[in-house]
Design a protein around this nucleic acid. Structure first.
Lengths: 343, 343
DNA sequence: GAAATCAATGTAAGCGCTTGCATAATCAAT
DNA sequence: ATTGATTATGCAAGCGCTTACATTGATTTC
């Protein structure tokens, strides 16, 4: 029994089973290298002692952890939840454990978390977006940790990515808005600094406007953090401006929902007086009234694909292929024609 | 420079700075034990080499990781997000790193994740709720890992907890519903198996009914997973039953929102024809139309308190005190008097 | 100026595991 | 039986760090 106050070690098991530590280790990691009779005896000892391998020791000795780290900008809302859940599910199927931490949209914290995860022996890393200091990439390179970017797709970035075309998607929804007859369009965007996804979306808007003969310079873009309250505030500001926009394109569903809530509060009818669109197709978008016309992102597929790709990179069977997934516009209630259609 | 393909070790730094590894280690962990001149030299070497300590080695040698693990039932919706974010913030302030994983409401996976986290050297664990196999507690005990339960409060459970009174809270909101004049009440509950919080809430409902002279036996309780879609389905079923309940108490906001969405779809007016209440006061609750009358839970406070308590347990300055936080009913739009007030 | 004291640094023993290599056991073939 | 080929197991060297203890050198005290 040894000291019951202390977790048993390989050694304890070896002694209990009357074999060497090497044999015990092999029983656990390469069972076919050990003859059945011994194996059974060892496994019984493992059971009897309630032995769990010490992970730190394992990592140190084997330099392999079967752990993947992911750093997402926030856990505060569900933007990344669905994709991440799928990512974890697929990782589990492949024998990996996922460790998640949140950077709270701060590059410094992200860097810190990356170090923490790498130091902890993560075999690979999932990061969101491409924007980060070069030194981070140097660090990953030096430590030889495979990393993959999700939620964004840039064909020739430093890291491979499994994501979607933020620019094209926003352009797509803008076109729908223009097709509806809107000419006076504004945007509530997420913070673009250090966030290539947000930036690309704004760019998508501008390009769509330009291509349709509208002046991007005359379009107000309010930048704010992804937060319902902030979306509400920004909406209020936009409604106070002249000429008042007839459509407001939001960089994400959270902002759109904030805008809708504020519209409700101000007694402004959506979409009759003003149209509002979102991005992400979160559950939220289909639950508010009116429901949000938005860009559907295949989160689950992205998560699974990312897991597959990253584990292959870790195993050395892939050098990291980038994938661009398709997005689509989901028409719901919050987008309609502008009010004075017949001016 | 050494081999640029490999991360530098303590040894490399020691050589570079012309000191022993012990001195380098001390520079990093107990800077005042080393004279300034040497310290500067060492830190320069650290910088030059881009050295990061190998965590596994540190854990192994020091048997201390400054890592806290948390296992939450799901990341799929935001139920735990806010509390967890506060937990992480407070941990950061105290020099700890948080690692999160999700058990997908499965006891087996939770157990697996606990092992993973403990084996990884987590100094302490945050768990949700008290319901789990005894062997898990044995395991924690054997490995001497302090653990704390949140989102639930049971004074004399095996583990200390920082939570709130699920039973009392649900009783409280039920009383409000009864005070409004409702006599025919139903509930949509989360799955109670392995979930003491859900179970306590149902019990709270039953007790409130009984205390107010209503028959708990005549009250329908539908059990389903915390999912908007499921909430919608359950609501539809309830509306089809006779006598149709005039108030539906939901075990959580997600279910309530699902119910509200379905009501909208079915053309049933809330609260004019049927009242709906939630639990948690998630952001979601204040965004849908009508907004959800719900039980406010002090998530942030709970997260911070839990972090404080758990770090003290880890440091050995506390044996684990339990705290019960106050909840309150937030009156919003989804609760009103029953339709045929004057029968 | 020698002895005693104290601060700064070095030495080296683990921490619990994996794994290359050596050795022992087994088996088939002569 | 003997040999050689195979297979199963043991031995022991790390993996990169922390830390008790030993050593050194500087400073104080009488």
């Amino acid at each position: 029994m040894s000291d019951s106050r202390t977790a048993p070690t390989l050694n304890d098991v070896a002694r209990e089973a009357g074999v060497s530590t090497a044999t015990v280790s092999r029983c656990l990691n390469a069972p076919d290298k050990v003859v059945e009779k011994t194996r059974i005896r060892v496994l019984k000892a493992v059971d009897r002692l309630g032995y769990t391998p010490n992970f730190a020791a394992q990592v140190m000795a084997a330099k392999r952890s079967f752990t993947i780290g992911a750093i997402i900008p926030t856990m505060d809302n569900a933007i990344f939840a669905r994709g991440l859940q799928a990512f974890q599910d697929e990782l589990r199927d492949r024998g990996y454990t996922l460790l998640v931490s949140s950077s709270v949209y701060s590059p410094e914290i992200e860097q810190e978390q990356i170090r923490a995860l790498v130091a902890r022996g993560a075999d690979g890393l999932l990061l969101i977006g491409h924007d980060r200091p070069k030194e981070v990439y140097d660090y990953l390179d030096q430590h030889q940790v495979p990393a993959l970017v999700a939620w964004s797709h840039l064909p020739d970035a430093l890291l491979p990515s499994v994501g979607f075309d933020n620019h094209g998607a926003l352009r797509g929804i803008t076109e729908k808005v223009i097709d509806m007859g809107h000419r006076n369009i504004a945007m509530i965007s997420g913070v673009t600094k250090g966030n290539d996804r947000a930036r690309d979306r704004v760019k998508g808007l501008r390009d769509a406007l330009r291509e349709n003969g509208l002046d991007p310079e005359q379009t107000t873009v309010i930048e704010t953090s992804y937060d319902i309250e902030q979306g509400a505030l920004a909406f209020r500001d936009l409604m106070a401006s002249t000429p008042r926009p007839t459509a407001i394109i939001c960089g994400n569903d959270v902002l759109a929902v904030g805008a809708i809530r504020e519209a409700h509060k101000l007694g402004i009818a959506v979409p009759d007086e003003v149209s509002i669109t979102g991005f992400d197709d979160m559950e939220l978008a289909n639950v508010v009234t009116p429901s949000v016309t938005t860009v559907h992102v295949p989160h689950r597929e992205m998560g699974r694909k990312a897991a597959r790709e990253l584990t292959e990179m870790v195993a050395g069977t892939s050098k990291g292929r980038s994938t661009c997934l398709d997005t689509s516009v989901v028409m719901r209630e919050s987008l309609g024609p502008p009010p004075s259609q017949a001016r």
